[in-house]
Amino acid sequence: MTDRRTILQLLAISSLAAVPAVGATLKPNSDPAAAWRNPGAGEKDPRLYCLAHAILAPNPHNRQPWLVSLEGEDTIKFYFDTSRRLPATDPYDRQLAIGCGAFLEILSIAAAEIGYETQINLFPMGEPQPYLDDKPMAHIRFVKGGTKDPLYALITQRRSNKEAYDPKKPVRAEALQELLTMEPSDKLTLAGTLSGDAQCESLRQLTIQAYRREIETPVALKESIDLMRIGKAEIAKYRDGIDLDFPGIGAMQAMGLITREKMMTPGTTAYQQGLEQYDPLAKSASGYVWLISNSKDRFAELAAGRAYARLNLRATSLGIAMHPMSQALQEYAEMGTIKAETEKVVGLAPDKCLQMLARIGYGGKVSPSPRRGLAEHLRT
Rank of each mutant, 00 (worst) to 15 (best):
T380K: 12
K232F: 04
A254H: 10
K283N: 07
Y79V: 04
N62W: 07
H139L: 15
Y362I: 02
D3G: 11
A321F: 12
K222F: 03
G145T: 07
G287I: 00
R306T: 11
H323R: 01
K162Y: 06
D45T: 12
I109P: 00
A173G: 10
M335D: 02
K283G: 00
Q177D: 14
L67M: 13
K27E: 14
M1D: 13
P368A: 06
Q157P: 11
P218N: 00
G319H: 05
P65M: 07
S195R: 11
G250C: 09
L311T: 01
L132V: 03
D243W: 12
T337A: 11
A349G: 08
P350L: 08
G126R: 00
T82L: 05
V219H: 09
R141M: 07
S369Q: 02
R298K: 09
L374A: 04
A12P: 09
T207E: 03
L378S: 06
T380E: 13
I155D: 01
C353S: 14
S326R: 10
S14L: 15
L16V: 09
L67K: 11
I225D: 09
A309D: 05
S195G: 05
L311P: 04
H323Q: 02
A52K: 01
P368S: 02
L257F: 13
G250M: 03
K168A: 13
A375Y: 14
G115I: 11
K77I: 15
P91N: 01
I235D: 00
V366T: 07
S317V: 07
I338C: 05
D31S: 03
R158Y: 05
I114Q: 09
L51G: 04
F246V: 10
E71R: 11
Y152G: 06
F299R: 14
D279F: 13
S317H: 12
T2L: 10
G256A: 14
M263W: 06
A17H: 13
P170L: 07
R85N: 03
P58G: 08
Q273D: 15
A97F: 09
A191H: 04
L275N: 02
G99I: 05
F299S: 11
A54S: 12
A210E: 05
G146C: 13
K222T: 02
C50E: 04
A153P: 14
V219G: 08
V289T: 08
I140K: 10
G305P: 06
T89K: 02
L378Y: 12
D81M: 08
G40F: 08
Q205F: 03
R158K: 04
E117W: 13
L86S: 05
K44V: 14
V171T: 02
L16S: 03
I7Q: 14
L227K: 09
